[in-house]
Design a binder for these strands. Structure first.
Length: 323
DNA sequence: AAGACTCGCAACCGCCGAGCA
DNA sequence: CTGCTCGGCGGTTGCGAGTCT
């Protein structure tokens, strides 16, 4: 099968930004007649445009149900979570965000969320902690210059040593977050991919499980204190939990999650508990490249900790936090 | 004040799969 | 089965606005 241009090259069709007049014509035609055949629409609407261009203009800009304005925190988190599961499947991500277009989400991810994840020491492509030292060195330079870090202090630190420390710090935090995430993901009913959880939860002998999970969360809480407390505060940026107030915020969030979770377990209610939202997505069931259309099983598995050993991660991975 | 540079976003390009004759 | 057309998708580009020097 050969490749065909969507519009004939010799037609000398207009390209570039749409004018208000063109918008009005397209809007007027589609609201009156709908859009069954995009190739015919430009001629019928009196536009010197390619059908594809009309479709794009309609779906990305003129459609009446399009949501304008900034992305909310909730939307950001949905995008990050879904991107960690689906990869660059922007249209599938957009399907979970009413009023947002795939193009808009793609632009938003590439311009804002990508940088945000990098600041958190997370690879925006794989959603795993950054392990590339060159990249970390690069990032450390960027952060120290952009955040007005004390350069006299920084000049005394070898960039490689700094990057190594940063890597260790990020990895440590990431492991803990990975644990927490693994515990919370199945019970997050806001996650569109885990809607089966409460049904399974209600019908399983789940009380033992929930008690274990709650205990694990409290255990993680103490791990967080021990690990983060020992990690040197390398800079003043917000790239990780690097100061005491952030740490205590994180702890109190964990505690409230424990409370909520215990409440859920006692009542077996279907209250929405948002466990995912406070945590960056560090877990990806498979790499985005592999994730394409694979079904992601989000049902709860009591052997949560054993699930952490996927993707070739061996015991040594956990040795420094589970000595 | 002005030129250089960076950033964000709308729009385009090229590929692919579905559907149809 | 083959060839053709169309719609959809993801990657890329180019331009305008904002910021820096």
């Amino acid at each position: 099968m050969g490749r065909y241009p969507c519009c004939k090259v010799d037609e000398d069709l207009k390209k570039g930004p749409w004018t208000n007049e063109e918008d009005e014509k397209l809007m007027d035609y589609i609201t009156k007649n709908g859009h069954t055949n995009w190739q015919l629409i430009p001629k019928k609407a009196g536009l010197n445009r390619c059908g594809k261009s009309c479709r794009l203009r309609w779906t990305n800009y003129l459609r009446p149900d399009i949501k304008r304005g900034e992305f909310s925190i909730e939307e950001e988190e949905i995008i990050i979570n879904l991107h960690s599961l689906l990869g660059n499947k922007w249209s599938r991500i957009a399907a979970h965000l009413p009023g947002r277009t795939d193009n808009e989400i793609k632009n938003f991810y590439n311009t804002h969320l990508r940088k945000k994840l990098l600041r958190l020491g997370i690879d925006p492509r794989t959603h795993k902690p950054i392990s590339d030292l060159n990249l970390l060195i690069n990032l450390s330079h960027q952060f120290t210059s952009k955040h007005n870090i004390n350069h006299h202090l920084m000049n005394n630190i070898n960039p490689l040593a700094y990057a190594l420390k940063l890597q260790a710090q990020v990895t440590e935090i990431a492991k803990i977050q990975q644990l927490v995430h693994s515990l919370f993901t199945p019970i997050n009913t806001n996650n569109p991919l885990s809607t089966n959880f409460h049904e399974n939860f209600a019908t399983s002998s789940s009380h033992v499980i929930t008690n274990n999970v709650a205990t694990n969360i409290q255990f993680l809480n103490s791990l967080l204190v021990n690990s983060c407390g020992n990690i040197p505060n390398l800079d003043n940026s917000t790239s990780c939990i690097s100061n005491s107030s952030e740490l205590s915020n994180y702890q109190s969030e964990l505690n409230s999650k424990v409370d909520n979770f215990e409440g859920l377990s006692n009542n077996s209610s279907k209250t929405q508990v948002d466990y995912n939202n406070s945590l960056p997505s560090l877990i990806t069931p498979s790499s985005p490249d592999q994730a394409n259309d694979a079904h992601v099983n989000q049902d709860y598995d009591p052997n949560t900790l054993s699930q952490l050993n996927h993707e070739g991660i061996d015991d040594s991975f956990w040795n420094d936090i589970f000595p």
